[in-house]
Amino acid sequence: MFPVTTFTASSVPPMTGRTIVVTGSNSGIGRAAARVLAARGARVVLAVRDVDKGREAAATMTGETEVRRLDLADLASIRAFASDLDEPVDVLVNNAGVMVPPLVRTADGFELQFGTNHLGHFALTNLLLPRLTGRVVTVSSNGHRVARSLDFDDLNWERKPYQALPAYGQSKLANLLFTAELQRRLADVGSPVIATAAHPGIASTNLGRAHNERRRWLRLLVSLSDRFAQSDEDGALPTLYAAVADIPGNSYAGPGGFQEGRGAPALVGRSATAQDGELARRLWAVSEELTGVTFPLRAAAPASD
């Protein structure tokens, strides 16, 4: 375990002149993080599926904000968003996600959790990379430990009976493998951009509630979690830490308290599977094939004499 920090929202430095994109920033830890970044002077783009809810969230923030539509469950929407955002982006926060819904498929036929939590952010990040100048932060979860590996023969749950929690764990494991491989590729081409990851611990948010109102065991789980949960504001601190702190690429931030459930941010560990470089490279290749989006950067040519 790494030392716990004294990082708070007031530790975020002035961000004037920087543009930050936060996906899923109309509620929960995404909204809390966006609120802090805007208050510190950043121009924050709220990338949300529901523009009306995004505008309601933006109205609660001080500073410069802009609401743009982005549906991470639709590759066409992701491409349109990336195409329309033709300015430099200092930080991309891949925050949006879905948690343990019934079996639902994205517009492109992917299982919703894998398609949104991983493939959507994979495509968005690579499409924006030519304009990214600083950092990519991807929000994972301690739920990544549920997944022992990735079932490449059935990533979209088309053959085996669907299980929502293992599918969620698989998508969160994919977030960490993506971060590791992205950082490796960025370093290989000499890019100044770094990739980091974060998890909120136990945070009291709406994640998981929308799809599970009739699922008794999940209602019970949410109720128990809420008793021990941090606020959205505290749950957002690891994301903010991963976005602005002086930490190396492929760092993973989470609460530093008991079982990483709550507390001030710290750099935390991850499962052995999440550190498997070969698995990360294989996931990247499959993700390129599924999305049709590839890593866009190349190493700079050596200077001529």
Rank of each mutant, 00 (worst) to 15 (best):
A38T: 08
R31Q: 14
R131H: 08
I78Q: 00
G120Y: 05
V36L: 06
L92N: 02
V91L: 04
A32F: 09
D90M: 11
D52P: 02
A58V: 05
P101H: 10
A96I: 11
N95S: 12
T106D: 07
I78H: 00
P130S: 06
A32D: 10
Q113G: 08
D108P: 01
G63H: 10
A57Y: 01
S83F: 04
D71G: 04
A82W: 00
A42S: 10
T116W: 10
A80Y: 00
D71C: 03
G120Q: 07
V45M: 04
L112M: 15
L127K: 06
R55E: 15
V67I: 02
G63C: 09
L103W: 15
R131C: 12
K53R: 14
T133I: 15
L112S: 14
M99T: 04
R69A: 13
V48S: 02
A73S: 10
L46R: 02
L128P: 03
V100P: 13
E66Q: 07
R43Y: 08
V100E: 11
L75C: 12
L37N: 05
E64W: 05
F122T: 01
A57E: 03
F114I: 14
L75P: 13
R79I: 00
D108I: 06
E64G: 03
D71L: 01
A96D: 08
R31F: 11
G115C: 05
Q113H: 09
L92T: 02
N126P: 00
R55F: 11
G41D: 14
D50E: 05
R35Y: 01
G134F: 08
D71A: 07
D84K: 10
A42I: 06
E56Y: 09
T62R: 12
M61N: 03
R35F: 05
V104H: 12
P102D: 15
V93A: 07
D84M: 06
R35C: 11
L127H: 03
A39W: 09
R69K: 13
T125N: 01
R55N: 13
L103T: 15
G41K: 12
F110S: 03
V51A: 11
A123S: 03
L132S: 07
R105G: 07
R40Y: 05
H118M: 09
V48P: 02
P88T: 14
T125A: 13
L129W: 07
T106F: 03
L129E: 11
D86M: 04
A58R: 04
H121A: 08
G54S: 12
T133P: 13
T125V: 01
M61I: 09
A32H: 07
R43M: 14
V91T: 10
L119P: 08
L46T: 00
L37S: 04
N95H: 05
G134S: 15
R105P: 10
F110P: 10
H118P: 04
Q113E: 15
F81W: 00
R43S: 12
M99R: 05
R35S: 13
V48F: 08
A123I: 01
R79H: 00
A39L: 10
R105Q: 11
T116H: 14
E56D: 15
S77M: 02
A123L: 02
V48W: 03
A73D: 10
R35P: 02
A47G: 06
V51L: 04
L132Y: 09
L127C: 06
R31G: 09
L70K: 01
D71N: 05
R69C: 06
Q113A: 09
T65V: 14
L124N: 05
